[in-house]
Design a protein around this nucleic acid. Structure first.
Lengths: 145, 145
DNA sequence: TGAGTTCGTCAATCTGATTGACGAACTCAG
DNA sequence: CTGAGTTCGTCAATCAGATTGACGAACTCA
């Protein structure tokens, strides 16, 4: 067996892609991009907005963690928190016009980065890697019992 | 193309493996294990010790970051900093007896975790994934020019 | 109506990693 | 031998990401 550093490799590969995304976004005129923004760009409902709790759930992180991300996005003018007419406790995180542009650009760049990876690896290997990663990410996490 | 969330998958797979390692170490009676300890276990010279700067370089992190890890390991009695006879500026991070046991156990568990992944994926796919990850981790990082 | 739950928030904490500064020690050209 | 520049480990400050705990306000439903 080679050095048992699969975990490290996974982390480095992650960083490589995340850094590439951030750098590419900054080149396109979006300073202050954070890697966490990507999850929101991928999961927020672009027309109606999404509740914070739902965003957190989709991103598999805590509400508190998501709140910090939303705070950041809000301070940059990309989202607004509006009251949920159906539940006075809840607030809906809704994209502003600038936010819609930002999200569209984010997704484009995300696709571009991933497209490069796909071309580099070849379609078949790319798919195999994805399957393997899904398996790795999924197994073991429900082993408490 | 599927959702362009390869980066997220990589991170989740990393966390899954890292958590498994930590949990397994704790089960074996090593509380307070940190994921960062693994790099040291894999790269430190187990007989003669290694200078902090070299450890940092091997782990591809800053000296300061490595220092925090070494501080932690030292406070747990797994390493000692001893003067380098060849360079009065330098200190050698050397394993204590307990440290040697800890490192041996770390490596065993690391192998076990990785072995499970390998069996789950099958040898061929495992190797393909490793190659793909190396490529992903390596490309692009020298794109500043 | 009241017990229990959910929503967003605040506060504190932790881990990982960074940059900047700095004294002490080393290297080497002149 | 000297002094300029570099390297080693450290301290300090900061930042990003994420967590747990607590809490008021609002909702649900027996």
């Amino acid at each position: 067996m080679r050095e048992p550093d699969l975990a490290r490799l996974l982390l480095e590969a992650h960083r490589s892609l995340a850094d590439e995304w951030v750098a590419s976004m900054e080149e396109r005129g979006y300073p202050g991009v954070r890697s966490g923004h990507a999850v929101i760009a991928l999961t927020i409902d672009r027309r109606t907005g999404t509740r914070l709790t739902d965003l957190a759930e989709r991103a598999r992180m805590t509400k508190q963690g998501m709140m910090l991300l939303v705070d950041d996005l809000e301070s940059r003018g990309f989202v607004r928190r509006v009251a949920d007419p159906e539940d006075a406790r809840a607030k809906i995180v809704r994209l502003t016009t600038r936010g819609r542009t930002y999200v569209a650009e984010s997704r484009r760049v995300l696709q571009a980065v991933e497209g490069r990876a796909r071309r580099g690896l070849g379609d078949r290997r790319y798919e195999q890697v994805r399957d393997a990663l899904e398996w790795l990410a999924g197994e073991e996490e429900d082993e408490e019992e």
